[in-house]
Amino acid sequence: MRLKEIPISVWIGMTGIIVALICAFFAPWIAPYGETEVVGDVWAPASDQFFFGLDNLGRDILSRMIFGARTTLFVAFCATLLSFTLGIVMSFIAATNRGWIDLGLSRFNDLMMSIPTLIFALVVLATLPQNMPTLIIVMAVLDSTRVFRLGRAVALDVAVMDFVEAARLRGEGTAWVILREILPNTLSPLLAEFGLRFAFAILFVSTLSFLGLGIQPPTADWGGMVKDNKDGIIFGISAALVPGAAIAILTICVNLVVDWLLRRTSSLKGGRGDA
């Protein structure tokens, strides 16, 4: 893989992601002010001192954005990773075993999907203790139903191929069949879905925070910041737009990179030759 073969769109996407990651990892050192520190007037406009201005309580928006990246990315990434692990394992077990295992898992999945996600999440989060692990698990479980659907569909296509049968004839166990024969051949659609789901997870955690059931104040997160500052929009104060734009840009960046990964992993020549 030569660097010059990477298209410009990927560089843009990677830059966006790396900036977000740096913010997330080094927030306390980068941020000019503290996460919850009140440094001036409510909704003070942008100035040399405060790059994006101040929020509804007089906290520095840039600092909170940097700290917010940490929370938002962490929650979204953990939730997506967990939902994929859960969804892929369950769906591949269903697809390789077929029969009643498939039937049971698929119908249970249908049952879960029939309940609107947001309402389900609101009900569950309202009853459970409001902390970050709970939030991640609830998001992951709800999202894994979508992953299950996709995973089962792609795995079924691969599971009927002769090479899977050949592995079974050799006497390979389910774990080998799933991890070595089926998974590598389903990676492209799953990776693409991962990027998309990650973007959705950012939106979802933001939505929950906006509704007051996600990340709890005073911890900064992008969705919560939109909520905190939404009233300002009426007065022509753009504070709410900054975290909104950050969510949009990060989502696009993730997708730019995923699109490219998708093209690369769909090559059957190990990335050599045709793309």
């Binding site: 191929m161 002769d162 050949a166 079974r168 004839l169 006497g171 070595r180």
Partner: peptide, 29 residues
Amino acid sequence: ALKQRSRDQLRRLQLIYQMADTAMNPRQT
């Protein structure tokens, strides 16, 4: 049934498929 056969019994009997294209995992060297 396949599942009841021992590893050695499986080894003794091998199968070559009509379509070599689909009989090999395209992601393996």
